[in-house]
Computed example of a mutant assay.
Amino acid sequence: MLKTFNAILKNNSIQWLDETPKIELDTSVNVYVTFLEEITINQTKSNGQKMAEALSKISKNNIFANINPQKWQQETRQDRLLPNRD
């Protein structure tokens, strides 16, 4: 016969609220967990609009205007020399 025990699951630990089941601590016991309340997961709200505004401000400042992309790439990548190539 299946018995039901009232408990709270918190941080992957069970806290028994009413009657505590008699279980040997060194054995494994199969259990079924039923959530009585809908679990709400905190979802971070997207700040897409704020991000778009920030990127727009950065693009208006034209901070990369004085950078030579080819020279920057050569300095950043620091490629090794390849045989038979200039």
Rank of each mutant, 00 (worst) to 15 (best):
M1L: 04
K3L: 11
T4I: 09
T4V: 15
T4A: 13
N6A: 12
N6I: 10
A7E: 00
A7L: 03
I8L: 10
I8H: 05
I8N: 12
L9V: 10
K10Q: 07
K10F: 07
I14Q: 01
I14N: 05
I14T: 02
W16Y: 14
W16F: 15
W16E: 01
W16P: 00
E19V: 03
T20Y: 13
P21Y: 09
P21Q: 12
P21G: 05
I23P: 09
I23N: 04
I23W: 02
L25Q: 05
L25A: 02
D26T: 12
D26P: 01
D26R: 10
T27P: 00
S28F: 09
S28K: 03
V29W: 14
V29H: 14
N30H: 11
N30K: 07
N30Q: 15
V31E: 01
Y32W: 00
V33Q: 04
T34C: 00
T34Y: 11
F35Y: 11
L36Q: 09
E37W: 00
E38A: 09
E38K: 11
I39H: 13
I39M: 00
T40H: 08
T40N: 03
I41Q: 06
I41K: 11
I41F: 11
N42Q: 06
Q43D: 01
T44N: 14
T44K: 15
K45W: 06
K45G: 04
K45A: 13
S46F: 00
S46M: 00
S46V: 01
N47H: 09
G48I: 00
K50C: 07
K50Y: 05
K50W: 10
K50H: 14
M51P: 08
A52R: 07
A52F: 06
E53Q: 15
E53F: 04
A54L: 15
A54S: 14
L55W: 04
S56N: 06
S56I: 01
K57C: 09
K57H: 11
I58M: 09
I58F: 14
S59I: 05
S59P: 01
S59N: 11
K60W: 14
K60T: 10
N61W: 14
N61M: 12
N61I: 14
N62P: 01
N62Q: 12
N62L: 11
I63G: 00
I63Y: 12
I63N: 00
F64M: 13
F64L: 15
F64T: 02
I67Y: 13
I67A: 09
N68S: 08
N68Q: 03
N68R: 05
P69M: 12
Q70K: 15
Q70C: 06
Q70V: 11
K71G: 03
K71V: 15
W72F: 15
W72K: 10
Q73N: 10
E75P: 02
E75S: 07
E75W: 12
T76A: 05
R77F: 13
R77D: 08
R77E: 13
Q78K: 15
Q78W: 04
Q78V: 10
Q78M: 08
D79C: 08
R80Q: 08
R80P: 08
L81V: 13
L81Q: 05
P83N: 09
P83H: 08
N84W: 13
R85F: 10
R85T: 14
R85P: 00
D86I: 02
D86Y: 02
